[in-house]
Simulated scan of single mutants.
Amino acid sequence: MSESDVQEIDQEQDLAGLENEDDLALVARMREGREQLVEEIRKVIVGQDSVVEELLIALFSGGHCLVTGVPGLAKTLLIKTVADILQLNFSRIQFTPDLMPSDVVGAEIVEEDAGHRRLVFVKGPIFTNILLADEINRTPPKTQSSLLEAMEERQVTAAGVTHQMSDPFFVLATQNPIEQDGTYPLPEAQLDRFMFKIELGYLSEAEEVEVVSSTTRVIDRTVAHPLSGEDILAFQRVARQVPAAKSVVEYAVRLVHATRPQSDRAPEYVNDWVSWGAGIRASQNLILAGKVRALLHGRFNVAYSDIKALAPSVLRHRIILNFHAEAERITPDELVRRLLNDVPQEIAS
């Protein structure tokens, strides 16, 4: 079955998924809002169009992002710009080796009032809409783990009391992939909670000329605010109504299964190079992000092309390679490229 056949089948499901006129208007608003957001981001950020698209897909999906790149590629500036445009509450934590969990989630302090003492929970910077976890791999796993509950369940438990997070809530973390002194590898449980691992590359020569020209003179970088937090929450709700054909879901699951050693779907090179493959969150994120990408590209159904386009960012941080792969200089991205070529879209019945 070709991709066009899948789309024709899904057209029959469109009305079941998005039959409300308000929903269709919301989809139109999402596409318009995406264009407005990109226009505002470009006032500050030059290039990185694919990175911006994936970051917006994560926001519209309700997912968290890990942004990786060498110093000076505007990782932090990109995240701060998005928060500014959306006018969401924003907190930045500079992760350092001496950072403690209480510096992230907050702590109980003794408060005295009219001679009476009581414990009061003072919320930490995690209680925000967008949390920039800058250089997240520079703090020990004990402090990194303070993000786990908030990222998955949108709540924080302290001293036996559960505190709900604000909606929307995103963790957008950065890390430097080349400077490893004084860093701590992110635990697999932490990595798995990021929908995407987005890698920033160097700009082209023309783009770098534009950056240098614009940053070495006086320029107005004031941005407009086309969308709000309420808009983002509405986009997240409508995206989940987008239908995905069973064959497309099966392809996403088949692709994820192929990353797991000893799986009957795994090619021989996966058994040779991979210690641990991606878990079920990878399959879920492929479909959910695929729904948002489909809407942003003018479609009301998820296509194979959506899964293939998003697979590198969804899978690269969920595949743990062994020393054989490292000896042969195989990277997770190279493995995903091979799987996209080798895993069939359809299985003959």
Rank of each mutant, 00 (worst) to 15 (best):
E54H: 14
L55S: 04
L56Q: 05
L59R: 13
F60L: 08
S61R: 03
G62N: 09
G62M: 06
G63N: 05
H64A: 08
C65I: 07
L66T: 00
V70K: 04
P71I: 02
G72N: 03
K75L: 02
L77V: 01
T81K: 02
A83H: 00
A83R: 01
D84G: 09
N89W: 00
N89Q: 14
S91W: 06
I93M: 07
I93S: 08
I93T: 03
F95E: 10
T96Y: 13
P97G: 08
P97F: 11
L99W: 02
V105G: 07
A107Y: 05
E111R: 15
E111S: 13
E112Q: 04
A114T: 01
A114Q: 15
R118E: 15
L119H: 06
F121L: 10
F121A: 08
V122S: 14
G124D: 05
F127C: 10
T128W: 14
T128K: 13
N129V: 00
N129T: 06
N129C: 11
L132H: 03
A133Y: 00
I136H: 13
I136R: 10
I136D: 13
P140G: 11
K142I: 00
S145V: 12
S146H: 00
L147G: 12
L147H: 13
A150E: 06
R154C: 11
V156H: 00
H163L: 14
Q164S: 14
D167T: 10
P168M: 13
V171C: 08
V171L: 09
V171H: 05
V171I: 12
V171E: 04
N176C: 03
I178D: 04
I178G: 02
I178H: 03
I178T: 11
E179D: 14
T183G: 10
L186K: 06
L186W: 05
L186D: 06
L186H: 05
P187L: 14
A189H: 12
L191A: 11
D192M: 10
F194S: 02
F194H: 03
E199L: 11
E199H: 14
G201C: 08
